[in-house]
């Protein structure tokens, strides 16, 4: 059929763009490295210029991988949430996960006086923030699961998630009032997000977790298609709403929770990418949208990271600022052009 031909062409285009974005991401930055040399380094793992070898393999390659994992994970969570809540403005963070993570990190950085001293001492290292973010989002996840089990209406979970967000940001505001400028700065840096601060073990861990989250997401492609008709029709087709809802929340939490813990809260990607996929492929079929979202998520984060490196300049701008500056206009444009929001 002609539609599948068209889709295959689009996949091919996206794949080429992805490869291009990946190589550009490795080539451009503070130090410019020619494409041919990047390819040579990737292929042979050796180069006469040891600084280039170091920059590509030890710095830019892990960062590019993290960018891909982040883009893919957040975008897929956004896609799931938009279908589950039948709300085009839902994203991975509607469940309040990033607020939970922020609260965890805020407590670790600024509220250590609240914790017993042996825990506070334990958390004063690089992994402290990771722990804080992870347990923060885990706590919110457990609360959301608890509330979801009491509620029949999927829509109300959305509101509960928003309430959690407000609550946690209020607590964070209180904490900032009592903290020193230095701690406040450290917290602010975390909220700006960073793709490049992960060591090899952390990148490996993130890769595994994102793959697990994606595998779980793949199992609900079919029920998500059924949910396009609304919950009653979906039920009449033999779909268990509760099971689908729980798997969706689980997959989103694993993906968005872990990604936020490792790279900080990354705005807009999860919201905007699923819409881009829907606009480009003009479909609601989740099999196609999942593929499209994987490609577009990876490409977008690689490009955003490229911009944040400010090629040729000696400084970088925070990744969360780039995604917001690019993402906000996209979302506004989508809302104005409401036909595209499906």
């Amino acid at each position: 059929m002609s539609t599948s031909d068209k889709n295959n062409k689009l996949y091919l285009t996206l794949f080429s763009v992805l490869v291009l974005a990946f190589i550009c991401n490795l080539a451009f930055g503070n130090v410019m490295i020619p494409f041919s040399d990047v390819c040579k380094i990737l292929a042979t793992q050796s180069h006469e210029k040891s600084t280039w070898l170091y920059i590509v393999l030890d710095y830019r390659l892990p960062k590019a991988l993290v960018a891909i994992l982040t883009g893919v994970g957040l975008s897929i969570s956004g896609l799931i949430m938009q279908t589950l809540f039948r709300n085009p403005l839902a994203g991975p963070y509607v469940l309040g996960l990033s607020s939970g993570a922020s609260l965890g990190v805020a407590i670790v950085i600024m509220g250590s006086f609240l914790l017993p001293s042996f825990i506070a001492d334990f958390l004063v290292n690089d992994y402290g923030i990771l722990f804080g973010a992870f347990f923060g989002s885990l706590l919110v996840l457990i609360l959301v699961f608890f509330v979801a089990s009491k509620l029949k209406d999927t829509m109300s979970i959305l509101i509960v998630g928003l309430m959690f967000s407000s609550l946690t940001s209020a607590i964070i505001n209180v904490l900032t009032t009592f903290s020193s400028a230095e701690k406040l700065q450290k917290f602010t840096f975390w909220t700006l997000g960073s793709l490049g601060n992960l060591n090899k073990n952390q990148v490996a861990l993130l890769t595994i977790v994102v793959l697990v989250g994606l595998l779980i997401s793949f199992t609900i492609i079919k029920p998500l298609d059924g949910l396009l008709l609304g919950e009653n029709y979906a039920r009449s087709l033999g779909i268990s709403i509760k099971k689908t809802r729980n798997i969706s929340i689980l997959a989103t939490s694993i993906l968005a929770g872990t990604i936020t813990a490792f790279v900080g809260p990354i705005a807009f990607v999860g919201l905007a990418i699923p819409h881009m996929s829907k606009l480009i492929f003009q479909t609601s079929n989740h099999k196609i949208l999942f593929m499209a979202t994987l490609f577009l998520g990876a490409i977008t984060m690689l490009v955003c990271d490229l911009i944040s490196q400010m090629p040729g300049q000696s400084f970088t701008i925070p990744i969360n600022a780039v995604t917001s500056i690019l993402g906000a206009p996209v979302v506004i444009w989508l809302i104005i052009r409401k036909k595209g929001i499906r």
Partner: peptide, 30 residues
Amino acid sequence: IVTTEKLPASNLTVSELIALGRHPYTNWIG
């Protein structure tokens, strides 16, 4: 069933919508 409820907005085509009726018979990925 055919209900009175309004369908949520989506890009589904007519034939895709009808195809969703085959859900109870298709494999895990539909």
